[in-house]
Design a binder for these strands. Structure first.
Ligand SMILES: [Mn+2]
Ligand SMILES: [Mn+2]
Ligand SMILES: [Zn+2]
Ligand SMILES: [Zn+2]
Lengths: 144, 144
DNA sequence: TTATTATTGATAATAATTCTCATTTTCATT
DNA sequence: AATGAAAATGAGAATTATTATCAATAATAA
């Protein structure tokens, strides 16, 4: 599924790349490079951390995955399952829980805002990055 | 202005803190910790980098300044001049130019979106973080 | 199969940030 | 103004995520 059969990429189809794509495409959640490294080792024991970083860069560049910064000091990665959607995050400052919120491009709540910006500043938006920080349902209760 | 006269803080009024607040409150732009360090040295030659980091953390916590991540590997800081506004950024991927876009809370384009999230996920938003990446006016021309 | 060359793993290097600790400042109290 | 307790500081070491280096290996086209 990730890359089918036969030649279809401008890059070599290596074990590390295939295993990493498979891993991330099946992962729910937002893993760091090192977490991915240890998971990958289970199926490809000889893999090196540098290769993980390199592959993550590559997959990010070609748009198969996305890199996020949730302000915990390390980058986190997520497979892009739906190319036609925007993907936002709610991050609980208390317990670290991350809630995904995905919407189709058509019903993107930021659509109008983005359009107005493109006009107002003559700025061509290529990607946007939105996180909400706060308290999840559970942690709100514990606050009392 | 930063802190008036007399006791008004739960922290000590030190030279470093006063100088750093003054510096940031007069700075247009988004300086990194090290840039702030060198600027600060001009007026307080003995200051240490660790103190700059510590003070930036403190001022961020108490809400006098805000820390941003523009994906260039270092945190950047900005004085909060208007407490009643949202402050967004457009970042040019080509030349690095950063455009500020500030709106009052009332006319915040994300207001409805935020409200819907608070309801839908029962998530209490404390802060939000939105950046747009793309091409500024100039760099769009150069692309051709 | 072979030649070419991209990719890899190990490890050293980098760089932003944090930590440690002895010394200095601040500030409430004399 | 002098004192003392605690907070804050500066210097530099330590930490940690990420990059760079380079000889060895694996993927591809011929
Ligand atoms: Mn997600
Ligand atoms: Mn700004
Ligand atoms: Zn929570
Ligand atoms: Zn530009």
């Amino acid at each position: 599924m990730p890359f089918g059969k036969g030649r279809c990429w401008r890059f070599r189809r290596t074990q590390a790349r295939e295993a990493l794509i498979k891993l991330l495409s099946r992962t729910k959640g937002h893993l760091s490079a090192e977490e991915i490294f240890w998971e990958l080792k289970k199926v490809l024991p000889g893999v090196g951390l540098a290769t993980v970083y390199r592959t993550l860069d590559l997959l990010t560049e070609i748009g198969l995955i996305k890199r996020y910064d949730f302000k915990d000091g390390k980058a986190r990665y997520e497979f892009i399952h739906n190319d036609n959607a925007e993907h936002y995050h709610l991050i609980c400052k208390n317990c670290g829980k991350i809630i995904d919120y995905e919407v189709t491009l058509e019903e993107d709540p930021l659509k109008d805002f983005k359009n107005s910006i493109q006009k107002k500043f003559n700025f061509k938006i290529e990607s946007s990055d939105l996180q909400f920080y706060g308290l999840c349902e559970n942690c709100q209760k514990l606050e009392k």
